[in-house]
Simulated assay, not measured.
Amino acid sequence: MRRVVVTGATGTIGRAVVAALHTRGDHVVALSRDAERARAVLGNVEVHAWRSPTRQSPPSAALDGAHAIIHLLGEPIGQRWTAAVKRELRDSRLRSTRLLTRAIHARATGSPPLTFVSQSATGFYGLHGDAWLTEQSPPGTDFLARLVVDWEHESLAAAAAPNVRVVVSRTGVVLSSHGGALEKMAPPFKFGVGGPIAGGRQYVPWVHIDDVVGALLHCLDTRAAAGPINVVSPNPATNAELSRALGHALHRPALLPVPGFVVRALYGEMSMTVIGGQRVSAAKLEGLGYVFVHPHLDTALRDVLSAAA
């Protein structure tokens, strides 16, 4: 039985990861700011309090004997980016990862080999047209891209420790029955007022929550997996295609376009993550042997929405 530590364990991805690890027989250790709430949410897992992940080292008792760490902690990106929010977005990712990496370096001699799978984002690439983006593509220059570049730098520093393998999972737009992108996207469509955003030609690097979990566990288990890996569907869709598929899945029209200026007025700088596009390749992940559970948008949306009903 492997001991797997999960940070951000009560989030949308974290809950699903913890459930999958527990189901397959791993010993799950959750780190949470609120240990009591985490126990109530996650059930029968070992929970340790990490009350201030931007200021305090993670509890050593949680990491002792760990075979793997899946690091998912971070303030949600999907909100208006005020100066204070930007600081929190950076601090929650960079400082927590730096402290966790230092703790990995300080592990006792003789500890088992460790796999460190650290969350990242396709925001690394910045804004693009329809060019395919691979893990070798250069980073963007906008706020989110710079944040992700720095975040990955903190994660990859763990590889300097003995017997540590590091994966940074550049995750796309997650489709989930609880939380994720659909929490904000679906309501207008349910009322019949949904449609493509800012012309709809921009690509969306979507991925089903089951494949996010499957990819993270595959990277944990596959020794050849290392460095940045895109966690996205092999079939990215344009915003217009996503709108049509969502409308069809909800049996609602998807005919009312949303002008870009409306999105910019609502979300400010953060709107560029919606208005801009990224056509991200999953070839590296597939080359490592991962087989997608939900590779096609229509069936992925139907599955997610049926689970939410």
Rank of each mutant, 00 (worst) to 15 (best):
V47Y: 10
A9L: 04
H48D: 12
R95I: 05
S233R: 03
S169R: 08
V280H: 06
G74I: 02
A186C: 02
A215V: 01
G260I: 10
R279N: 08
A282N: 00
R244F: 05
V6M: 09
L31A: 05
H71A: 15
G179Y: 00
V232L: 02
R170H: 12
T222D: 09
G199C: 11
I104G: 10
S57I: 00
H153N: 13
D130E: 12
H208Q: 04
W50T: 13
K184M: 08
S118F: 12
T12M: 15
L246D: 03
V263W: 03
R98K: 13
S233K: 08
L256S: 08
P188G: 11
I275E: 11
P234N: 09
A103T: 01
A159G: 01
S271F: 07
L31V: 02
E286C: 13
V231Q: 04
G199T: 01
T134H: 12
V85R: 14
R87Y: 03
V174H: 06
R264F: 09
H153R: 15
L133E: 05
R107S: 11
G8V: 03
T10Y: 07
L246N: 05
L100E: 07
V212I: 07
G123D: 04
S57D: 14
R3P: 01
S233T: 15
K184P: 00
A68W: 04
N44S: 12
V280K: 06
H153E: 14
V174R: 09
T122M: 10
E135P: 01
R201A: 14
P53C: 06
L21R: 04
I13A: 13
I104E: 09
E154Q: 15
Q79R: 14
S306D: 09
R146M: 06
V280T: 12
Q79C: 05
E88W: 07
I275C: 09
T7A: 06
K190W: 12
V167G: 02
F292E: 02
T273S: 14
G179I: 00
V166S: 07
V173F: 04
A225E: 08
V148T: 10
Y203A: 08
I77H: 02
V291K: 14
M1Y: 01
C219M: 15
G180K: 00
V4N: 09
V193S: 13
V204P: 00
L220N: 06
V18Y: 08
E152K: 12
G74R: 03
A226W: 05
A226L: 11
A83D: 13
G123N: 01
G192M: 10
V148I: 13
I209A: 02
I209T: 02
V117H: 05
R223A: 15
T82F: 03
V149T: 15
A308K: 08
T82N: 01
H294W: 14
G199W: 06
L99S: 09
I275L: 13
F261A: 12
A300C: 07
G8S: 10
V173A: 10
S155K: 06
E241G: 14
F189P: 06
K184G: 11
